[in-house]
């Protein structure tokens, strides 16, 4: 079976800083893969390479068996939804216009009223009332902004969703709510999900499989159930939040 996302020997350097040093990773269709690792180890860079936001120096990226760097860019990006770390909502647009952004543009664009209906429906799906639709992002709390970002990510029914640190900056209860929502949406829509996080409660709530990136390579990958008994000292140190171990605390 073709993997939804396949990274082979992916390299990326910024000047003398070699961030990715040969990442190999395979994510099956309908699978929820969570990428963990310390700050600056290249998790976000790998994600941005897949989306074409950053050009890798070497290596191949296949999405549904096709080279990610070739072919129609719009059609390629239409497969993806993305929840950004800070929400990345457009300040000048209302909440519903943010959610329906993709639906209002492009070849298959909907009428304004249809797009608004879809936006309100997606907002409901993430637990927000219809009244929120006409507010602006600056009028929302951090948790609500994340939910709007999530609604935007799923609005166009993508096949693959990326979640970049979905619980960063949220209190534990709101983190739990977002984790639950992410899991529900991934299962309900049957999408392939790739999540980047440092939050171990997110890992356990969201992941089918886990991959740990350390020093620009995948240090360990496997089902979330095997994570605690992996025997990998790097993974053990990371998931148990120990200062002592092979990963240097000062990087």
């Amino acid at each position: 079976m073709t993997a939804a996302i396949e990274l082979t020997d992916l390299h990326k350097a910024f000047g003398s800083n070699r961030v990715l040093r040969g990442v190999d990773l395979s994510i099956g269709k309908g699978e929820s893969m969570v990428i963990i690792g310390g700050s600056g180890t290249g998790k976000s860079v790998a994600l941005k390479c897949i989306l074409g936001l950053i050009k890798p120096d070497a290596g191949t990226i296949l999405v549904n068996g096709k080279d990610a760097t070739a072919g129609d860019r719009d059609a390629f990006l239409a497969q993806f939804g993305m929840l950004f770390q800070g929400g990345a909502l457009f300040d000048s647009l209302s909440v519903w216009q943010n959610v329906a952004f993709r639906l209002l543009r492009g070849a298959d664009k909907l009428s304004k009223s249809d797009a608004r209906d879809v936006a309100v429906e997606k907002l409901r799906r993430v637990g927000l009332k219809a009244e929120v639709a006409d507010l602006f992002p600056a009028e929302l709390s951090g948790g609500m902004q994340k939910r709007v970002g999530l609604a935007r990510a799923i609005a166009a029914e993508p096949q693959i969703i990326f979640f970049d640190e979905p619980t960063t900056g949220l209190d534990p209860i709101m983190s739990g709510v977002i984790n639950e929502l992410v899991r529900e949406i991934v299962v309900e829509m049957g999408v392939t999900a790739m999540t980047i996080t440092h939050d171990m409660s997110s890992v356990r709530a969201i992941a089918d499989k886990v991959a740990m990136i350390h020093e620009g390579v995948v240090q360990w990958t496997g089902p979330v159930g095997q994570m605690d008994d992996s025997g990998d000292p790097y993974l053990d140190q990371f998931i148990n939040a120990r200062a002592e171990g092979p990963i240097e605390a000062v990087r």
Binding site: K48, L51, G52, L53, R73, D74, L77, A78, F80, G81, M82, F84, Q85, G86, A88, L89, F90, D91, F101, R102, R105, G106, R152
Partner: peptide, 13 residues
């Protein structure tokens, strides 16, 4: 800085 430009790209714009 707030990744809104990246978000535009991922939204095929």
């Amino acid at each position: 800085v707030t990744e809104q430009i990246d978000a535009l790209t991922t939204l095929s714009t």
